[in-house]
């Protein structure tokens, strides 16, 4: 178990390092921060001075190594815009983003999983067909379109809810619903097909054949098996708690990490962009690690070294 964890953890670190490297290379090759931040009219000496002070005049490989060295000692650099530590800038925005993504995640799980299970149990019935229709609509409609439609209806037409900003909890309702609906649709579809697959397995018939009432067959035999593939999708959703709100934050002018990322990318504010990507990668990788551990808990076939069978 410890070795399993160590291997997993090592792989997770490697993934994060790769993401950081990729971001580093792409950002340096895709435009000059100096002209973007200072503007095109500044004299060349100012630009040269800016580059020197941020180390942008050094060869790329040296920049890369000093950057990694700094990360290893916990220094993620400063924003080129206002000089504040990038980590601080990003950390300031995290609560706002979580205020959207955490309730949205609960909404996805709370609606998506029960809807998927119910649809699978009443396959082909009117409720199944409705759930599937909503589910297909839910994930074919892009979230910015859904967001705009919700604004049109609930802000412009009905005037019930604000269309943007972050002043009261009412402002969070539309962005949360926008994210929650799409995710619930994906989860419902996924849960439904996992459940249908499981309900067709011979061990479900065995459970019925030994007299287990249908409700207990669902709870005790089908759900624990259907949970195994579903955990993957939920894990992915947990992994996007930080990064999953870019579009919605932009649509609803919500001052979270996603909007900071959009602004920082367009400014080539290297330290900030890299800090956000590092954070996103770390969240994803952590979620993946948790999923792996959950697999072990849910599926005895995934457990290693747990009692050798005689064959």
């Amino acid at each position: 178990m410890l070795r399993f964890l160590a291997v997993r953890f090592g792989r997770a670190l490697l993934t994060v390092a790769l993401v950081v490297t990729f971001a580093f290379v792409v950002l340096r090759l895709s435009g000059d921060p100096a002209t973007l931040i200072l503007g095109p009219e500044v004299p060349p000496e100012a630009i040269r001075a800016f580059r020197e002070s941020w180390g942008l005049d050094e060869p790329l490989w040296r920049q890369y190594f000093s950057y990694f060295g700094a990360i290893a000692s916990g220094d993620l650099g400063n924003s080129m815009r206002d000089g504040r530590p990038a980590l601080e800038l990003v950390a300031d925005r995290i609560p706002a983003t979580l205020a959207l993504t955490v309730p949205a995640l609960l909404l996805k799980i709370g609606i998506g999983i029960p809807a998927g299970v119910y649809a699978a149990m009443h396959r082909g019935g009117p409720i199944d067909r409705t759930v599937m229709l909503v589910a297909v609509a839910g994930f074919t409609v892009p979230s910015f379109v859904l967001g705009l439609v919700l604004v049109m209806v609930f802000s412009v037409q009905l005037g019930w809810l604000p269309s943007g900003g972050r002043d009261t909890w009412l402002h969070a309702v539309l962005p949360i619903v926008t994210m929650g609906v799409g995710g619930a649709a994906i989860l419902a579809r996924f849960t439904r097909s996992a459940m249908i697959e499981v309900l067709g397995q011979p061990y479900i018939r065995t459970a019925s054949a030994k007299g287990v009432p249908w409700g207990a067959v669902i709870r005790g035999h089908a759900l624990p098996n259907a949970a195994i593939p579903t955990v993957t999708i939920v894990g992915f959703m947990v992994g996007s708690l930080i990064a999953g709100a870019v579009v919605v934050e932009s649509v609803f002018s919500w001052p979270g990490v996603g909007r900071l990322l959009v602004v920082a990318v367009s400014n080539r504010d290297l330290a900030v962009v890299q800090t956000i990507l590092l954070l996103v990668a770390a969240t994803m990788v952590t979620a993946n690690l948790i999923v792996d551990l959950l697999y072990g808990a849910l599926d005895p076939r995934m457990r290693r070294g747990a009692g050798q069978g005689a064959h």
């Binding site: 397995q201 011979p202 061990y203 018939r205 065995t206 459970a207 054949a209 030994k210 035999h221 624990p224 098996n225 195994i228 849910l298 599926d299 005895p300 076939r301």
Partner: peptide, 15 residues
Amino acid sequence: AMIFQDPASSLNPVL
């Protein structure tokens, strides 16, 4: 009581 052909898949893998 009834038993089935393929004992491996007729038993619940997670119990």
